[in-house]
């Protein structure tokens, strides 16, 4: 062997083959719909249901990526709405969750355990179960058919998970750091701002990403029920516009889906650079 690896990382040839086979099976399940969707977006509509079925597109082209803008002229607005709603949800969630998670991680107060359990229980209900009460609530508040109708429930249902995630992260920050700051005269808020927030940044980034993705994915149900104005519609509803009365424009629908998730992908790509581990190295010991 030219390159030495540690004993713990050495495998027999059949172990290597089974590891890669397992990865391949897993990846196939996860990625096949995406591959198929992408190939569909390249096919001309008339050839979609040609028999025999062909996996590789004949006469494949990116035409659908251009014609989709004509079939649904508002598509750009829907994408913008989606990003806008998700961004506002993420910001709102972060503003509320950072102090909350800190409190849950550090302060002893009565009802902390039950509250955390309640948050977990809320996660068991999807928003769909509560649609009718939510609808009545929105109506009483007078925010039906506004952005708020999608932002408020969106944020509300994402907060519990975010608190749990960030609380766990913050509990890993050594308590001595806060005690040292306290001994040096810093207030709780000063400590939160100067010590905890910078150290919790990777955790906050994870929460931001999951919240953004969550908000991006869950809009459908709220948008469908709480909003009937076209100009506020987000991406999932916008995709519905490709379902015509006679036929579904499958290739443009697939193209639109890929275009629609592109902004989210870009946001995540940039955020993940902040997921640096080992930021607390050198704090204690």
């Amino acid at each position: 062997m030219s390159k030495q690896t540690a004993m713990i990382n050495r495998y027999k040839w059949y172990e290597v083959i089974s590891i890669y086979a397992a990865i391949a099976v897993f990846l196939f399940f996860v990625l096949a719909p995406f591959v198929e969707g992408f190939l569909v977006s390249l096919k001309p509509l008339s050839r979609l249901f040609s028999s025999p079925y062909r996996f590789w597109p004949e006469h494949g082209s990116f035409d659908a990526y251009f014609t989709m803008w004509d079939s649904v002229p508002n598509f750009g607005l829907y994408v913008f709405n989606s990003i806008f709603i998700s961004t506002v949800v993420t910001v709102v969630v972060l503003i509320l969750v950072v102090p909350a998670a800190y409190a849950f991680a550090r302060f002893e107060f009565s009802g902390r355990g039950p509250l955390l359990a309640a948050f977990l229980a809320v996660n068991m209900f999807s928003g769909a179960v509560l649609l009718i009460p939510l609808f009545r609530l929105m109506r009483s508040l007078g925010i039906l058919n506004t952005y708020a109708a999608m932002i408020v429930p969106g944020a509300a249902f994402l907060i519990p998970t975010a608190i749990w995630l960030l609380r766990t992260y913050m509990m890993r920050i050594p308590k001595e750091l806060e005690e040292a700051a306290y001994v040096d005269g810093a207030t709780r808020l000063y400590t939160l701002r100067r010590i905890i927030l910078p150290l919790a940044m990777p955790g906050i980034t994870v929460v931001a990403i999951t919240t953004f993705i969550g908000a991006y994915a869950q809009q459908f149900i709220y948008a469908l029920t709480f909003n009937s104005k076209t100009e506020f519609m987000p991406l999932p509803i916008g995709l519905f516009a490709y379902f015509g009365r006679q036929e579904v424009i499958w290739n443009e629908l697939m193209a639109a889906s890929f275009v629609g998730i592109a902004p989210a992908l870009i946001v995540i790509f940039f955020l993940q650079r902040y997921l640096v581990s080992g930021l607390t190295a050198g704090a204690v010991k």
């Binding site: 040292a180 306290y182 001994v183 010590i195 150290l199 930021l279 704090a283 204690v284 010991k285």
Partner: peptide
């Protein structure tokens, strides 16, 4: 009184330095 008002300073076993 809070620690800072007591006029004490403390060095911790784990140093408790701010890593950032």
């Amino acid at each position: 009184l809070a620690p800072v008002k007591r006029g004490i300073a403390m060095v911790f076993q784990s140093y408790a330095l701010y890593p950032h």
